[in-house]
Design a binder for these strands. Structure first.
Length: 773
DNA sequence: CCATCCACGTTTTTT
DNA sequence: ACGTGGATGG
């Protein structure tokens, strides 16, 4: 079983008891070590699989580990807990959270829900969103929760800090709202589990006795709350094994505390430390590049990757005029690899710093029929139409969550407006009941008038589905629901542009529900909703699909690809201007670690690219080559670096630049005949410029001109409106004024009137109902 | 209550 | 460049 392991791996895999810290460089086979250690414990030391737990950060990592454990352990492996931090905590809380005053059927709020809550909080506390941003407060709260500070702890910690007073109030109100809705946000999942353990020692002990052996993956990314959670669990038996790489700590912005790994040996004095430095993934050239860059960081544990691999090829650097050219060149290269049989699409990944950078690639790939899958961006379950339908399901499942009920009470429009909602909401608050409970007795709420009938039929509808759920499947209920509410029709009416895509998303949701029900026939709607709350885009990646992957470097962590492009290596992009401006060396170091993560994703061929010009937020930026590229000794790179060093070099003579055929023919020809296939649920990129710049024929131009002039003539006759430019007109509200201009708009005349008492107004003639004086 | 327009911020990364 | 949310008028 342990055959073929190197000495260090063997040492780690056969460690039996006591704390173990494995510093595992990128590609050093840490998952292998973890899974083998589990197998070893079971076989050699007769540890009951029931007593083992492995915790990861992502579902994908958990799934991968699960698979490998199942393979190597065999019988009994299913009783090992292999889960993410969040799902572990949910599982524990579902069982015991009633001990700390929540209902076990709590719901989980995503970022979007949090924002809605905070908005309501601002309204209630009369806070002007211009002075204090919701996102700022939420971020602050999240940081506090990462540090296990509840509203009271937070208040006392910052009691002296006057500037935090408002935030304290927001935190209190926010948490109170979540409580009322029986909801927890992501951070609460961890925090409340710790709180539960603190409040109920007997429950904690129960879990301590269960999980005698604990392994934590990606340990460098843990925050204080997660660390505390793990530490509490491990405190009785101290069989805690953590695996991590301080050089790959890239989640500080999310509260990760790099000290957790740096100080592990101080917390656990008798820690055994094993360093894995042999890399089994990449060529020596790739490792040289990665090592050279990360060597610029201070405060590392220190480690140098090496490989026994003999085959090698250079790391390429390529500079382009702009982001489009970057996309075209990378895309054409990929197409040619495929054509020449050098690589399949599934061997290739394109990495970038920010999600916005995916756009150019998508446009070109769609145009050239290069299959791709975009990971990240807007999470599938965060899309509006999906959230709407899920809000319906949540309401049907458990109408305790006011946020969800309010979200859908008027979607699609059924004539229940803000006024009505506010009245019901106030009534509910005053009578200490949930919003939905108040809806149920709408007739008794004063001042609702005709609206109460509409509320009643809404409640009736929800109740019908509730009953239906007893008899039939979730799929049938949601299908019925979509039909009854006319949701699809609403989408079509609302925006023709993206209606197709949104419909596709709904179709996708239906098939996800179907496969969920097929796979877990015994599970309830609540189970489904819970699973959905914790999945991410990355989880939908299927290794066997033949497509190029597009994703941020953060998403790519832990993954590997034979061919990798790390794009957008420019100052201001990577490192981001935010980090550059902060002037904080720690922030730059975190970016450098990110670069290290990026480079070490590549197995055989790494290409680093740079674009001289790039559109950012509607503005063209000219950025110098990233400092991280400058940190690579030139002998490790094949390709010429622009001469500019941290500034723009105006007269840079660019003859090393590749052909830029997009000037004549933006996307070149396509002679490959790839099967067109859309792998991504992501929004379809807009039509390529070729299509967009459809030249108007002369005849069309003339026709267009005709219609336009016709409009003008009509106006000058002063005809069907009964008035023209210069006439005096009367408006119901604004009184008398002079018509300054008449313009034909898309469906109506636009009238500009200078009113004697109200000044200049532009209005539509149809609505304005002006009368000639 | 709804449709429309405009101003504004957003984009560094996410379980 | 793009989407969102507030203001506005009917």
């Amino acid at each position: 079983m342990l055959e073929g392991m190197n000495d260090r791996q063997y040492e780690a895999a056969t460690h039996k008891e006591g704390p173990l810290l494995i510093i595992a460089g990128a590609g050093s086979g840490k998952t292998r070590v973890l899974t083998h250690r589990i197998a070893y414990l079971i076989e050699e030391h007769k540890v009951n699989p029931f007593n083992i737990m492995a915790i990861t950060f992502t579902n994908k990592a958990a799934a991968e580990m699960r698979e490998r454990i199942d393979k190597i352990v065999g019988f009994g492996s299913e009783s090992i807990w292999v889960m993410t931090f969040h799902s572990t905590c949910v599982r524990i809380l579902r069982r015991h959270i009633d001990n700390i005053g929540y209902d076990n059927s709590f719901t989980i709020y995503d970022t979007d829900d949090q924002k809605s809550v905070m908005k309501a909080v601002f309204k209630k506390l009369n806070i002007d969103p211009k002075q204090l941003k919701e996102s700022t407060v939420l971020k602050e709260i999240s940081r506090a929760k990462d540090e296990l500070l509840g509203p009271d702890d937070y208040a006392s910690t910052y009691a002296a800090d006057y500037s935090k007073r408002r935030i304290v109030e927001c935190y209190r109100e926010y948490q109170e709202t979540l409580r009322r809705n029986n909801a927890l946000d992501f951070d609460d999942l961890i925090r409340f589990t710790v709180a539960l353990f603190r409040a109920c020692p007997e429950i904690l002990e129960n879990y301590q006795d269960r999980f005698k052996y604990i392994m934590v993956d990606e340990y460098q990314d843990t925050n204080t709350a997660q660390f505390t959670f793990v530490k509490m669990l491990a405190d009785k038996y101290r069989n805690i094994c953590v695996v991590g790489d301080d050089d790959q700590s890239i989640y500080k912005f999310r509260g990760a505390n790099i000290q957790n790994i740096l100080n592990f040996e101080k917390v656990y004095r008798d820690t055994k430390v094993v360093k894995l430095e042999q890399n089994y993934r990449s060529t020596q050239s790739i490792l040289n590049v990665a090592n050279a860059v990360i060597a610029n960081n201070t405060g590392r544990k220190g480690k140098k990757l090496w490989t026994a691999r003999e085959d090698d090829e250079p790391v390429y650097f390529r500079a382009f005029e702009n982001a489009r050219e970057e996309a075209i060149e990378i895309g054409s290269e990929i197409a040619s690899y495929k054509r020449r049989g050098i690589a399949d699409f599934k061997d290739i990944a394109i990495l970038y710093r920010t999600n916005a950078q995916s756009r150019e690639f998508e446009e070109y790939f769609v145009h050239e029929n290069i299959p791709y899958q975009l990971v990240g961006g807007v999470n599938f379950y965060a899309r509006k139409e999906i959230k709407d339908l899920l809000a319906y399901l949540k309401t049907v499942d458990n109408a305790r969550d006011d946020l969800q009920v309010k979200r859908i009470i008027n979607v699609p429009k059924r004539g229940i407006g803000l006024t009505t909602v506010t009245k019901i909401s106030d009534f509910a608050d005053n009578n200490d009941m949930s919003f939905y409970a108040a809806c149920k007795i709408a007739d008794e709420i004063p001042g609702l008038g005709k609206a109460s009938a509409k509320i009643n039929s809404f409640v009736e509808m929800i109740e019908t589905y509730k009953n239906a759920l007893q008899e039939t499947t979730i799929l049938d209920v949601i299908k019925q629901l979509i039909e009854d509410t006319g949701y699809i029709e609403e989408i079509r009416a609302e925006d023709g542009e993206r209606a197709d895509e949104r419909e596709e998303n709904i179709g996708e949701l239906l098939s996800k529900i179907k496969s969920y029900e097929d796979e877990h026939p015994e599970n309830t709607l609540s189970d489904f909703l819970e699973e959905v709350a914790l999945v991410s885009d990355l989880d939908s990646v299927d290794e066997n699909d033949s497509r190029v992957l597009l994703m941020t470097i953060h998403s790519a962590k832990g993954l590997e690809y034979p061919i990798c492009y790390v794009s957008g290596m420019e100052e201001g992009i990577f490192p981001s201007y935010m980090t550059i401006n902060s002037g904080n060396d720690d922030d730059i170091e975190e970016e450098r670690r990110l670069a290290y993560v990026a480079f070490t994703r590549a197995m055989n061929r790494l290409t680093i690219t740079y674009a001289k010009a790039r559109m950012i937020r509607g503005e063209t930026q000219y950025n110098p080559v990233s400092r991280f590229v400058r940190e690579i000794p030139t002998e490790y790179l094949k390709g010429e670096l622009p001469r500019n060093k941290f500034r723009i070099d105006e007269d840079y003579d660019d003859n090393s630049s590749p052909r830029s055929f997009f000037k004549e023919n933006p996307f070149g020809g396509n002679d490959d005949g790839f099967i067109p296939r859309k792998y991504s649920f992501q929004s379809k990129p807009v039509a390529s410029p070729v299509v967009k710049k459809h030249e108007m024929t002369q005849a069309e131009a003339k026709a267009k001109l005709d219609t336009m002039t016709k409009g003008i003539q009509k106006i000058s006759d002063s005809n069907e409106l009964g008035y023209g430019v210069g006439d005096r007109v009367r408006h119901i509200k604004f009184g008398v004024g002079t018509v300054l201009e008449l313009k034909e708009g898309p469906r109506d005349y636009q009238v500009t009137v200078d009113f004697d008492d109200f000044g200049k107004k532009i209005m539509y003639a149809n609505f304005a109902k002006l009368k000639k004086e």
